[in-house]
C-alpha cells in the first residue's frame, strides 16, 4: 500500500494515465485484501468505502482549496436522507439512487459553499459548524422525513443492473461500492489536475496571485464545494443503499470531525493521502475497538498524537519521504 501510494504520487505528475491506472489497481488490490482479511465483515468494509468518499470530498475543499470546515457530514447526511426517501418513495434502481445522492449533495454543497467560502479563518470554521449543527437539528426534528432519532429505515434498493441482489453478507454491496469508489477516484485524479483544479490549489497557496492571472476566487470555491458535495453525495447514497438505514450519526458533528482527522492523518491536499488516511484510521479503529473495547479511544488518540509528531503532513507524505531512504538503504545492503 505504502509503495503504491508513493509510486502513484510520483507518477501522478509525470504520467497522468499511469496515475489513473494506479488508482484503479490500488483500489482493486485494497478491495481484494479487505475481502481476504475481513471475509465475514464486508458490511464494515462497505461502510468504510462510503466514509472514504466523504474524506475524498473533504479533501477537495480543505486540502485543495484551504477551506476550513467542521460541518462536512451535512453534505453526506442530506444525500443519504434524500436517497433513503427516494428509495422508500419508489426509485429503487441503484444507479438512479446514486444520481439522487449526487444531485442532493451538489445542491447542499453549493448552498454550504456559497455561505462558507465568503469568509476566511475562524469565522469560516464557525459557520461550517453552525451549518452542520443546523442540519443535524433539522434531521432530528423532521422525523417524518428522517425518522428522527430512530433513523430512516426500510431502504431496499433493487438488484444492481437488475442482476445482483444486495445480499445479507454484503458481497454485492461491497463490490458495487468498490467499483463506484474506483470510478470516482479516477475522475477526481483527473479533475484535480485540470486547470480548474490547479487554480484551486493556487487559490489555496495565495488567492491574490490567483486573481492576478484571472481567477475569480469566490465562484471557483463555490463550484469546488458543489463538486465536493457531489462526491459526498455518492458516499451518502452508498451508505443509505448498503446499510438500509440512515441515522442521525450521518449528519453529526462527530462524523465531520472524524473525517477531518482521517484526512489530516493521511495528508491533506493529496487524494492518495485521503484514501490512505481513511483506510488506515477505520481499520485501526475497527481492530482496536474489537480487541480492547474499554480503552480503544485512548489507543486511537495515541496513534493520532504519534502521527502529528512524526509525520505532521500526514502518512502519505511521511511514506513519500521515507520510502526512497528505505529503498536506498536496502539497495546498498
Amino acid at each position: 500500500m505504502a509503495g503504491l501510494s508513493t509510486l502513484a504520487k510520483t507518477s501522478d505528475r509525470a504520467f497522468p494515465f499511469a496515475a489513473e491506472l494506479m488508482g484503479v489497481l490500488s483500489i482493486a488490490a485494497l478491495g481484494m485484501l479487505g475481502f481476504l482479511l475481513f471475509p465475514d465483515d464486508l458490511a464494515f468494509l462497505t461502510r468504510l468505502i462510503g466514509i472514504t468518499l466523504l474524506v475524498l470530498s473533504l479533501d477537495l475543499v480543505t486540502g485543495y482549496c484551504g477551506v476550513a470546515t467542521l460541518g462536512h457530514a451535512a453534505l453526506f447526511g442530506v444525500s443519504a436522507y434524500a436517497v433513503g426517501n427516494a428509495c422508500i418513495g419508489g426509485i429503487r434502481e441503484p444507479i438512479l439512487l446514486l444520481g439522487v445522492g449526487i444531485i442532493a449533495g451538489t445542491i447542499m454543497g453549493a448552498i454550504s459553499g456559497a455561505l462558507i467560502t465568503r469568509f476566511r479563518g475562524l469565522p469560516q470554521l464557525v459557520l461550517s459548524i453552525a451549518i452542520g449543527q443546523l442540519v443535524a437539528a433539522l434531521a432530528n426534528k423532521l422525523s417524518s422525513v428522517t425518522g428522527g432519532s430512530d433513523g430512516l429505515s426500510g431502504i431496499t434498493p433493487d438488484p444492481v443492473l437488475g442482476l445482483f441482489r444486495f445480499d445479507m453478507y454484503s458481497r454485492t454491496a461491497f463490490t458495487f461500492s468498490l467499483i463506484v469508489l474506483a470510478v470516482v477516484f479516477v475522475l477526481l485524479l483527473r479533475f484535480v489536475r485540470s486547470p480548474f483544479g490547479l487554480l484551486c490549489r493556487g487559490i489555496r497557496d495565495d488567492d491574490l496571485r490567483a486573481q492576478m492571472i484571472g481567477a475569480t476566487v469566490y465562484p471557483r470555491l463555490v463550484i469546488m464545494y458543489a463538486v465536493s458535495g457531489a462526491v459526498a453525495g455518492v458516499g451518502g447514497a452508498l451508505n443509505a443503499m448498503t446499510a438500509g438505514v440512515v441515522g442521525l450519526d450521518s449528519v453529526s458533528f462527530e462524523r465531520s470531525a472524524e473525517v477531518l482527522v482521517m484526512l489530516v492523518l493521511g495528508g491533506a491536499g493529496n487524494l492518495w493521502g485521503a484514501l490512505f488516511g481513511s483506510v488506515v484510521f477505520q481499520i485501526f479503529e475497527h481492530i482496536v475497538s474489537a480487541t480492547n473495547p474499554f480503552h480503544w479511544m485512548t489507543l486511537v488518540g495515541l496513534l493520532l498524537i504519534a502521527i502529528v509528531l512524526f509525520a505532521p503532513r500526514g502518512l502519505s507524505h511521511g511514506v513519500a519521504v521515507l520510502w526512497p531512504k528505505i529503498f536506498k538503504r536496502g539497495g546498498r545492503a
Binding site: 486547470p195 496571485r209 490567483a210
Partner: peptide, 18 residues
C-alpha cells in the same frame, strides 16, 4: 514572483492558459 510554490512548473504554467 508570484509562482505557486506547491505546484510544479508545468502545473503553474497550466494555470495561466485561460
Amino acid at each position: 514572483r508570484d509562482v505557486f510554490a506547491s505546484l510544479t512548473v508545468e502545473e503553474n504554467l497550466a494555470t495561466g492558459l485561460k
